[in-house]
């Protein structure tokens, strides 16, 4: 299964739902927001969100900025 994470296409066969993918991608989920195919997925829905081929995921966080 190919999933695009932050613009990079990756093979993500090992993860069935969004929660597993997030857990494997980041060490802290505070202040993290996830978009699936352009729509925000709330943290409490990550587990139910089943991933499918060619999903596009954005993982975004706060950074320093003016």
């Amino acid at each position: 299964m190919k999933i695009t994470i932050n613009g990079k296409e990756t093979n993500s066969g090992a993860f069935t739902n969004l929660e597993e993918l997030v857990a494997a991608s980041v060490t802290k989920i505070d202040g993290l927001v996830v978009e699936l195919n352009g729509k925000i997925v709330r943290k409490n829905q990550w587990k139910e969100q089943i991933l499918k081929d060619s999903d596009k995921i954005e993982m975004i966080q706060f950074v320093g900025g003016g």
Partner: peptide
């Protein structure tokens, strides 16, 4: 204060600025 939002860098652990 102002902050911005960017994609996380999965290869590089970055601290949450809000802390």
């Amino acid at each position: 204060v102002t902050v911005a939002m960017r994609r996380i860098d999965a290869e590089k652990h970055s601290e949450n600025i809000l802390e």
